[in-house]
């Protein structure tokens, strides 16, 4: 049993990270008052741009395999910011229905990435020959119990993203910027009266979500998938679920994504692990979605959702 847990843990954490950063992006967007169901599409975009950049760079400079990956992640992040501007422009300046605009983002990403991929590489898939290699953290991995669970087979991106989560929690909670951003999602008219530029804050919120979700897609690519295939198989929507399940709080999201990460990993490996063979895999696969529905019902009375999320900002409304 213990070896099973030891085996599962690193994979579960690896699987959690793309969800975590994407959901965190969604948090910034929704806290600023813009619902972003385009997370899925933004992840696809990140996965595509990342795969394209990395595969081109790795062929050009075979001696800098790892450096190429980091550059790929950065380029994916920048592309996510640019792509999310479409959503920001529609929802902030054009008063579009944010859900429809987000759906459009998903559809555009799914179609155009494969279209471009076929044009550039001749195939709808881009395979990476070299992804990130996992490593054991020196010293810490020797700690009994915790070492094998948390500090073996880890990736640099994991530690980076965990740092980003903590910083985000601090920024949202403690800084003037975070307070203003949250005010725009709760009561934008009051925020405006207090001198906050609501439109600009919402643009920033959506752009951060674009950056993070796209990075999430790229991390998924370099740690787990190893290949761009034109889809991220609903992980963007799962991140959205984690955002709700975590009740729009950074640490809540961390807990929710860990939970989903474990559920998915257990579902993926349940067939080869004797202790889990008796659980039908369908139950494990359905688990995150069903639990989110239940959470929605339980929290329906006391939901922490930003009050103005999804609403068009009308500065004359009181």
């Amino acid at each position: 049993m213990w070896t099973t847990i030891e085996q599962i843990f690193p994979y579960a954490i690896m699987f959690t990270i793309p969800l975590l950063i994407t959901a965190l992006g969604g948090l910034f967007s929704e806290r600023s008052g813009v619902v972003n169901i385009g997370l899925e599409g933004l992840m696809v975009m990140g996965s595509f741009i990342g795969a394209l950049t990395i595969s081109k760079l790795q062929t050009a400079w075979p001696q800098h395999m790892v450096g190429a990956i980091w550059i790929g992640l950065l380029v994916a992040l920048a592309a996510g910011v640019l792509f999310s501007l479409l959503h920001a422009f529609a929802s902030v300046h054009l008063s579009a229905n944010q859900v429809i605009s987000g759906t459009a983002i998903n559809m555009i990403a799914g179609a155009i990435t494969v279209f471009l991929s076929r044009n550039i590489t001749g195939s709808g898939n881009i395979r990476l020959t070299n992804g990130f290699q996992s490593f054991d953290v020196p010293w810490l991995s020797d700690i009994p119990i915790l070492g094998p669970l948390l500090f073996t087979k880890t990736y640099w991106t994991t530690w980076l993203i965990l740092a980003v989560v903590l910083i985000s929690a601090w920024v949202l909670k403690k800084t003037p910027f975070g307070l203003r951003l949250r005010a725009c999602g709760e009561y934008p008219q009051a925020a405006e009266a207090a001198g906050v530029n609501v439109r600009r804050m919402r643009y920033i919120g959506v752009m951060i979500s674009g950056a993070f979700a796209s990075l999430g897609g790229a991390i998924l690519l370099v740690t787990i998938a190893g290949e761009f295939t034109g889809t991220v198989a609903g992980l963007g929507f799962l991140s959205l679920a984690a955002l709700i399940f975590g009740q729009w709080r950074p640490l809540g999201i961390l807990a929710a994504t860990l939970f989903f990460g474990f559920a998915s990993t257990v579902a993926n490996v349940s067939q080869v692990i004797p202790a889990l063979q008796d659980i039908p895999p369908i139950i494990l696969k359905l688990f995150p979605y069903v639990i989110t529905l239940i959470a929605l019902v339980i929290f329906s009375k006391s939901s922490q959702a930003p009050k103005a999320a999804g609403e068009v900002f009308d500065s004359g409304k009181r």
Partner: peptide
């Protein structure tokens, strides 16, 4: 021309339909 052009056109149409306010 890759067949995904059809999906792309539809996706662009829905974006413009969403921003019909413009």
């Amino acid at each position: 021309i890759p067949p995904e052009i059809a999906d792309s056109i539809i996706a662009i149409i829905i974006y413009f339909a969403a921003t019909s306010v413009l």
